[in-house]
Design a protein around this nucleic acid. Structure first.
Length: 570
RNA sequence: CGGGGUGUGGCGCAGUUGGCUAGCGCGCCUGGUUUGGGACCAGGAGGUCGAAGGUUCGAGUCCUUUCACCCCGACCA
């Protein structure tokens, strides 16, 4: 490709107020351009990179025997209704009607479609396990797009779906795990594999592949001694025992003229934070229940764990009016002791969820559901009985993992994930069955596996750039060689043209900068664009009957012969 | 949806006590001189100032409404 013909220009504008390096560099270097928020044009350079990432991912999918298909973009809404996902993911599902008023979901993920496709066939146990996958545009009606490619509203995703028996699943899951690790390595990304929350996808467990980066949105914890890694949403940790050797004291109401924070309680009673009970009241819009989360004072509530424990979907904080009027309590003085007696009477459903940390403390203190009234020596079982006891605590850096090592907090970009779906979808969808060796119909045991192509591109730029621009790994660079011709002498032009022909003949993808611009501009563009190998032809190199070669990530250039270049550099 | 910010040629911006032909840099076009780290000279094209309505003799500038985008948060791959 000749630069003079390339659509999409570089820009040296410093003023772009994009916070994320990948966003700024990809825009400045002419890889992407925004349409509206969260919807992007991929320019020729960007599309080449995207295609190369797809090639790498495809190779690794084929390597584990997954078979590529392409599904429709518009999914019949009935399929989503069949699995109840029109309600659970309604916040981001986009729908559209055709001329006959048939309703469709714009596909944001395709579990239902995959199951629907498979159940159209009569499958034998001999066909199992198998996987189908696709690269296709996915639509997410995100509340807020951000960071260029990091969070967008439509993007190409590789999504794979495995079908098999429960006994086969473990191996399949491991195959995807290994294939993902290999693919990301080839793409130049170091990834951490972390246990994560399934969210609305369903199933019992899943893992995210995360590329560590300050630009990322995923917070996760790693215990480097044991290898334990988990997303903040699900991270577990050791809860230290506090004062279990203490005698139980009598429950004691006291006057407590204080503010409403935890610190106010600590100061007033001059007792440790951990001995205080933290009460956080939520309302679940999905199930119309109040959920009172209680936890040891030195911990915080993990809302993801809480939702899992309580079976809630749309959690929000309760308002002060609700605390007073619906539940007869008082903000800042909520207590599980005799909580919401009034509320229960007035017809509100209340669920009390206690964190297991409350079992590590005796004679706790906290509010009394009335303003300026506290209780001392509160004890679980005796003074209050939670409806649910579970781990609903947020892990903190420095805590010990269950395997003993210290939890280190990291931030990263989630580039891929693998989900165990189990029978979740095949239970909800009719006839998702194969015939086993005894001739009976059995449900498939499923997994699903995603990689965001554009986000992967952003993560790679994030991991591979310097102050001058992008530094692409060879495997996905839009071109392998940046051939710069300096000066317009006939001899130089001719030599550069010839070299360009030779590189093409050797099937080396080359971007030939044949523009009549200054050397400085060409070098700057070469650096910004990030093509890994730079070759210069100029009057100077011509005199030596050689060319100049430099790698993007190295400082020094070398003058070598053409033969040497072709034989050992490219 | 809440908070903050911004909309003026392709890009980045100035113009904000209303005032006459709307400016600057980059980029683009023409000609010329240049050519090893973002060159220079001369000439040129390109804007109904996000949109709609209003106030006024007069609106980029004031008022109302609205749309879009950026950042933070809620929320989420």
């Amino acid at each position: 490709m000749r630069s003079s013909q390339l659509f999409g220009k570089t820009s040296k504008s410093e003023g772009l107020d994009y916070k994320i390096a990948s966003h700024r560099l990809l825009t400045q270097a002419g890889y992407i351009r925004e349409s509206t928020a969260g919807r992007l044009f991929f320019l020729p350079l960007g599309q080449r990179v995207q295609n190369k990432i797809i090639d790498v991912v495809r190779k690794h999918m084929e390597g584990i025997g997954a078979q590529e298909v392409l599904m429709p973009t518009l999914h019949p809404l009935e399929l989503w209704q069949e699995t109840n996902r029109t309600t659970t993911v309604s916040f981001e599902l986009m729908t559209i009607k055709d001329r006959r008023d048939a309703e469709f979901a714009l596909g944001g993920t395709a579990e239902e479609m995959a199951v629907d496709l498979v159940r159209k066939f009569n499958v034998s146990y001999k066909d199992l396990p198998f996987s189908i996958y696709q690269f296709s545009m996915k639509f997410r009606d995100e509340m807020r797009a951000r960071g260029g490619l990091l969070r967008v509203r439509e993007f190409i995703m590789k999504d794979a779906y495995s079908f098999g028996t429960e006994a086969q699943f473990k191996k399949t899951y491991q195959q995807y795990w290994d294939a993902y690790a290999a693919a990301f390595t080839e793409l130049g990304l170091k990834t951490d594999v972390v246990a994560a929350d399934n969210g609305y996808i369903g199933g019992e467990y899943c893992h995210e592949f995360v590329s560590e980066s300050d630009a990322g949105e995923s917070r996760y914890f790693i215990d480097e001694t044991s290898g334990y890694a988990a997303h903040e949403d699900v991270a577990t940790f050791q809860v230290d025992e506090k004062n279990l050797d203490e005698e139980l004291q009598e429950l004691k109401p006291v006057e407590a003229v204080r503010g409403t924070t935890m610190e106010d309680g600590v100061k007033l009673h001059n007792m440790p934070l951990w001995q205080q009970i933290k009460d956080v009241l939520y309302f679940d819009e999905a199930t119309k229940r109040y959920i009172l989360a209680i936890i040891r004072g030195d911990f915080d509530v993990n809302e993801t764990k809480l939702m899992q424990a309580a079976g809630a979907w749309e959690l929000r904080s309760a308002t002060e009016e609700e605390i007073r009027d619906d539940l007869g309590s008082e903000p800042g003085f909520i207590s599980p002791v005799d909580f919401a007696k009034q509320g229960k009477n007035s017809g509100h459903t209340v669920v009390i969820v206690a964190d297991k940390s409350l079992r590590t403390v005796r004679n706790a203190y906290g509010g009394a559901n009335r303003k300026h009234q506290d209780l001392l020596s509160i004890n679980i079982d005796r003074d209050y009985v939670p409806d649910i006891e579970a781990d609903i605590a947020l892990a903190q850096p420095g805590m010990k993992s269950l395997k003993g090592g210290e939890l280190i907090e990291k931030k990263g970009i989630e580039v891929g994930n693998i989900f165990q779906l189990g029978y979740h979808y095949t239970n909800l969808m009719k006839d998702a069955e194969y015939t086993d060796d005894a001739g009976t119909r059995q449900k498939y045991y499923m997994g699903c596996y995603g990689i965001g192509i554009g986000r992967t591109m952003a993560a790679i730029v994030d991991a591979h750039h310097d102050e001058k621009g992008i530094i692409w790994p060879d495997a996905i660079a839009p071109y392998r060689v940046y051939l710069a011709r300096l000066g317009g002498d006939e001899a130089v032009v001719q030599a550069a043209d010839e070299l360009y022909q030779k590189l093409q003949a050797a099937h080396i993808d080359t971007l030939y900068d044949d523009r009549d611009i200054s050397a400085g501009q060409k070098f700057a563009d070469a650096d910004l664009t990030g093509i890994p190998h730079r070759v210069v032809v100029s009057a100077r190199t011509l005199k030596e009957n050689a060319i100049e070669y430099k790698q993007r990530d190295k400082d020094a250039a070398e003058v070598i012969s053409l033969d040497e270049l072709l034989a050992s550099r490219l």
